[in-house]
Lab assay of single mutants.
Amino acid sequence: VTLFVALYDYEAITEDDLSFHKGEKFQILNSSEGDWWEARSLTTGETGYIPSNYVAPVD
């Protein structure tokens, strides 16, 4: 499982989006939707859509 880490803070715009803070880690559930990925936060356990350009793979 490839994990991703937030590079910036993000505040949800719609109820389907997931708010997060810089440094938060995610498991990507679906990355086939283009620039918005469905993800689960490993910090909160919540799922929602995140902007793919706000995250990077964890080394």
Rank of each mutant, 00 (worst) to 15 (best):
G48Q: 02
A39V: 12
T14F: 15
G45K: 05
E38S: 08
H21E: 08
A56T: 11
I50Y: 00
K22C: 08
R40M: 12
P57K: 08
I13K: 14
Y8Q: 09
E24D: 15
T44S: 09
G23L: 03
E11N: 11
I28G: 01
K22S: 07
V5E: 10
I28K: 04
A39C: 05
I50D: 00
K22T: 08
P57R: 08
L29H: 05
K22Q: 09
D17R: 15
E33P: 10
S19W: 03
T47N: 05
D17I: 13
G34A: 14
T44R: 04
W37D: 01
V5Q: 08
L18T: 02
Y8L: 09
D59L: 11
E38F: 15
L42K: 04
G48P: 00
H21T: 13
P51F: 06
Q27Y: 14
N30E: 07
F26A: 00
F20N: 00
V58G: 05
F26N: 00
D17Q: 15
E11F: 10
A56C: 09
P57H: 06
V55I: 10
S31D: 13
V5M: 08
Y10E: 00
S52Q: 06
G48H: 03
S32K: 11
N30Y: 06
Y54H: 09
L18M: 13
D9S: 08
L42E: 08
F26W: 01
P57Y: 06
A56M: 10
Y10W: 11
T43G: 07
G48I: 02
V1C: 15
D59G: 12
I13D: 09
F26G: 00
A12D: 02
E46C: 12
G34M: 12
T43V: 11
L42C: 11
I13C: 12
L3G: 04
S31G: 10
Y49L: 13
K25Y: 15
P57Q: 08
T2N: 12
F26H: 01
D35R: 09
A39G: 05
K22W: 05
L42H: 04
V1E: 15
A12M: 03
G34P: 15
V58P: 04
T43E: 14
D17V: 15
L18V: 05
D9C: 08
P51I: 03
V58T: 07
N30T: 08
S31I: 11
D59N: 12
L18K: 02
I50F: 01
G45C: 09
G45H: 07
E38D: 04
V1M: 12
